[in-house]
C-alpha cells in the first residue's frame, strides 16, 4: 500500500558534498498503515536502469539522523512514524545525469505476516 510514496514524486535529486556529486537521494514514506521501529525496516532493494545497488551504498535518514542499514537493524529505540518522510541516499559517484529509471522496493518485517512486506515503486527521472 501507499506504493507511490516509496519514491516520492519529484523528489529524486543529486547529493553533493562540496564540489563533488556523491550520489542521489529520494524521499520515502512508510508503505504500511502504522509506524514501525526502524529495526524492522529491511534494506531497500534499489536498481538504477536495472542494475542493482549494493546495500552498503545505501543510507537511511530520519530528521537529522542517518544510518547504514546495518546500523538500522540494531536501533531498537527509533520509530518510523506514519507521517514521517525519510530520505534514502544512494552513494554513487557522479550521481545521476540525464534520463534514468530508478526502482525501489521497500521491505518491512511485519510480525503477523509470514513473509516481509515488499512495496515497489519505479520512476523515470531526468536530472541535470
Amino acid at each position: 500500500m501507499f506504493d507511490s510514496y516509496v519514491i516520492g514524486e519529484g523528489t529524486v535529486r543529486n547529493v553533493t558534498e562540496g564540489d563533488e556529486t556523491v550520489g542521489f537521494a529520494f524521499d520515502s514514506r512508510i508503505a504500511y498503515y502504522r509506524g514501525l521501529g526502524v529495526s524492522m525496516v529491511e534494506p531497500f532493494e534499489i536498481t538504477v536502469d536495472g542494475e542493482a545497488v549494493p546495500t552498503d551504498a545505501l543510507r537511511f535518514s530520519l530528521g537529522d539522523r542517518t544510518w547504514t542499514f546495518d546500523e538500522l537493524e540494531t536501533d531498537y529505540d527509533t520509530r518510523w512514524e506514519l507521517t514521517d518522510t525519510a530520505t534514502v541516499t544512494v552513494l554513487r559517484p557522479g550521481g545521476l545525469r540525464g534520463e534514468h529509471t530508478v526502482e525501489a522496493i521497500e521491505v518491512l518485517r511485519i510480525s503477523y505476516l509470514p513473509f516481509p512486506s515488499r512495496t515497489r515503486c519505479a520512476r523515470t527521472v531526468t536530472l541535470d
Binding site: G37, S39, M40, R109, S111
Partner: peptide
C-alpha cells in the same frame, strides 16, 4: 494493539 515479535532480526 500490535505485537512486534520480529523486532529483532
Amino acid at each position: 494493539m500490535f505485537l512486534d515479535t520480529k523486532k529483532y532480526k
